[in-house]
Simulated assay, not measured.
Amino acid sequence: MSAPRNVVVVGGSIAAVTAVDTLRAEGFQGRVTVLSEEGDPPYTRVPLSKGVLAGRQPPGDTDLGGLPSGVELRLGVRATGLDAGARVVRTTEGDVPFDGLVIASGARARRLGVPGHPRARELVLRSRADGLALSDRLAHASSVLVVGGGFLGMEIASTCCALGKQVTVVDIAPPLDALVGPYMGAVVRELAEQAGVVLAVADKVTLLAGSDTDPYPCAVSTGDGRRFEADVVVTAAGDVPNIEWLAGSGLRVDRGVHVDERCRAAPGIVAAGDVAVLDPPGSDSAWRRIPTWTNAVEQARVAALALLHGDDAPVHRPSRYGWTEQFGWDLKMVGAAAPTGEPAVLDGDLTAGQAVLAWPDADVRHTVMAVNHPTPPARLKRLLRGAV
């Protein structure tokens, strides 16, 4: 298939911006149109649960900056369908034709409440608007209940503690274990409890609807009969890829847009970021969606190159890098999630609060983590491979 002349990018995330930047950096001079459902120009979500929620950064600091010259950014335009054969994206503002398409429609916060219930307006933290709504509620609250103990949930809990709130975190598994493993999970949970956070594990968590006067929920119940209440309840229970607009398009959209090793979903159509599912060739079970900032950037670069160069584009190889900041600690991690067993110490001393750790040992490594350590991500990746 020949290189496109008219590229449409659906989404306003870091994946969308990276794809556009890559197209222009490769010398693409054709038309580029970016369709973003949000009313704000593209921004990064990373500081929303940290500096922005804490009030240390204004929301405008999250802006990603202007798009390259000649790129048309259309805000407040939602994609409603895709006719892959006619090469048209259906939107709330009419049809938008393309001969090259980048699907970067991202994901939305997973919600526990019943959709459309008049008294279940959940607070989540996915967008800048979500952050403003949460900040407004926190200004009048003394206690916060966070449902979900992943990176986002624990970052919200950490920030709320720093704001002087009483914080409870409820999850169906010990917080952070599924990400950093039980060893480091226990270390960070101890930090959280020392900061005053109450941690609870329950086999089932149900959001209770708000009142007639205040539709925001303020309590959850658990499968074992416990009830947790707070002035503010925030759900941080993962995300859901935005794929509904692709129904009937002919693309494979099972829990995300399935793409090959070059992020191609169909001829002239690529996908990247939280919406994309990597489908390795010759495998029916290894496909996965990796909703991280780093993966979104790396996928978007490969996707844009594949749109221009086809089989000559590089293959996407997930770097498996992630990081979090919470309770005064900074964790950077490469390799497999949820490492088991006790790690080897490659540098520093964890009891002193600064170390580089490797699992399962110093010789055969599948996970490396820097804890409050200045080691940059590139060196962590070298350490993962056994290099210095």
Rank of each mutant, 00 (worst) to 15 (best):
G335T: 10
E193Y: 00
G51A: 15
V46E: 05
P241N: 00
V89G: 00
A271W: 06
E37F: 02
N372T: 11
M184T: 10
W329G: 07
V180E: 06
V146F: 02
G256E: 11
R385Q: 12
G30V: 05
D21F: 04
S249W: 04
L134W: 06
P58L: 13
G248D: 01
R110I: 03
L123V: 10
V205M: 08
V102R: 04
R137M: 05
T91D: 03
Y321V: 14
T222K: 08
L23W: 02
R382N: 11
L278H: 04
V88A: 04
L53S: 13
A15Q: 03
G185M: 11
V180M: 00
E325Q: 14
G148C: 03
A355P: 07
T294K: 14
P280V: 01
G12L: 07
L67W: 00
R74W: 00
E155Q: 13
F151M: 13
E93Y: 03
A129G: 14
L199E: 01
V8E: 04
E261D: 08
T213M: 07
E37L: 09
L35F: 01
V146G: 07
F228T: 01
D363C: 14
D99C: 02
A247T: 08
L152A: 02
T92C: 03
T375R: 13
G100H: 07
R226Q: 11
P314C: 05
E155H: 11
T18L: 01
A272T: 05
V388W: 12
A19H: 06
Q326K: 02
Y183Q: 11
V315E: 09
W293V: 05
L152D: 08
G55F: 00
P115G: 04
G225H: 02
A173R: 15
A3I: 05
V88Q: 10
A230M: 03
A178E: 13
P182H: 03
H140E: 11
A337R: 12
V315T: 15
L112N: 12
T22N: 05
V198M: 09
I14N: 09
Q326N: 12
L132G: 15
R87E: 09
R379Y: 03
R87S: 12
A25R: 06
N6S: 13
V356M: 04
T340E: 14
D83G: 03
R119M: 10
R317H: 09
V96W: 04
G94N: 10
V77E: 04
L278W: 01
L357R: 07
P360F: 09
D312S: 14
H366W: 09
